[in-house]
């Protein structure tokens, strides 16, 4: 089929702003977008810059925006992307573009990946043979490690949009891989360092990472798993732990969230200064009629007993 590819061109050396350049190409509808870009580079314009390697969805190098949607170019066919004979190809959005579709992967991807120290530190001395590990654990780790570091989850992350320094779901998923590995001997240390600022507690659990992951790895749930473990070893700030516990306790007791109590618990009942700090906010809420009822007036929701039963079942498990 004849397709016009409208491809983002940006050259820091010659022009300040990116623009779309059109290339006409006769190409199979089953061909991938990466195939098409490679054809353009080899036949029409050798200066066209984009990343891409394995062409089979394993290396994660060719993430870009195709028809306005974040996609892996080698796993996206021309036929499915074309609209009125055209396909637009652009770089992903939330990071500095270096040229055409090439973005600053070092800042976006690799720095964060290194920051979680993603290698296991087994106890010494090492066993003579392999470590004994159950295949169930391996299957879970395998799922996590099927991550190709395409960074679609970070691209979808709502925290990252406001704070690019957040370590992000991709690196945290990688962190989960080492924390969940029974051969690693530094689990507790890791949980403490992952609880530092810009770490796991900055996730706002919007589930966008899970929505965006093409491999079904469920990064959001991996972050929750890390948090649960962190609570157990006392990692994270006292406030964060209080908040986490109060949230659960409130839903367990009343079937829904007691916001007033959450605010008080988070600061800590005996933390007078912390409680005072909340006063201006409380007064503001009061003026707008949005102050939650004091917690001793908070009512259970209908069916709260059933919700409590769910909690108990889960706790037993």
């Amino acid at each position: 089929m004849e397709v016009t590819f409208k491809v983002h061109r940006y050259d820091p050396a010659t022009n300040g702003k990116g623009q779309l350049q059109s290339y006409m190409l006769g190409i199979d509808e089953d061909a991938s977008i990466l195939d098409a870009l490679m054809r353009i580079r080899e036949d029409q314009d050798t200066t066209l810059a984009f990343r891409g390697s394995c062409r089979t969805g394993f290396c994660g190098d060719c993430t870009m925006r195709i028809g306005g949607k974040n996609r892996i170019a080698c796993s996206t066919t021309v036929g499915k992307s074309v609209k009125d004979g055209e396909v637009t190809v652009e770089p992903i959005r939330i990071i500095n573009v270096l040229k055409d579709m090439v973005f600053d992967a070092e800042a976006m991807v690799y720095q964060k990946y290194r920051a979680v120290e993603p290698w296991i530190e087994p106890s010494t001395p090492l066993p003579q043979e392999e470590h004994l590990v159950s295949n169930e654990v391996i299957q879970d780790l395998r799922k996590v490690m099927s991550c190709t570091m395409c960074w679609l989850c970070d691209e979808g992350c709502t925290t990252m949009v406001v704070d690019r320094k957040f370590v992000g779901p991709a690196a945290l998923t990688k962190a989960y891989r080492v924390v969940a590995d029974p051969r690693d001997s530094k689990t507790e240390e890791r949980l403490h360092s992952l609880s530092e600022e810009k770490g796991m507690w900055d996730c706002c659990h919007c589930y966008e990472a899970t929505e965006h992951c093409p491999k079904g790895i469920d990064p959001t749930e991996r972050i929750f798993a890390l948090r649960n473990q962190a609570i157990k070893v006392g990692a994270g700030s006292t406030k964060v732990r209080n908040h986490y516990r109060s949230f659960g306790a409130s839903v367990k007791a009343h079937g829904w969230l007691d916001e007033a109590r959450l605010a008080i618990d988070t600061e800590g009942l005996t933390n007078i200064r912390g409680q005072l700090k909340q006063l201006p906010l409380a007064l503001k809420a009061l003026r707008r009629g949005k102050l939650p009822k004091p917690y001793f007036l908070h009512k259970k929701r209908p069916g709260a007993a059933n919700i409590k039963r769910i909690f108990k079942l889960w706790e037993k498990k």
Binding site: W119, H131, L132, V133, N135, I138, R142
Partner: peptide
């Protein structure tokens, strides 16, 4: 075996090997 010690998660049999 060295790869396993580095962290490769080979699939296991019933004995964990």
């Amino acid at each position: 075996i060295k790869l396993e010690h580095m962290g490769v998660i080979f699939s296991r049999n019933g004995q964990g090997k």
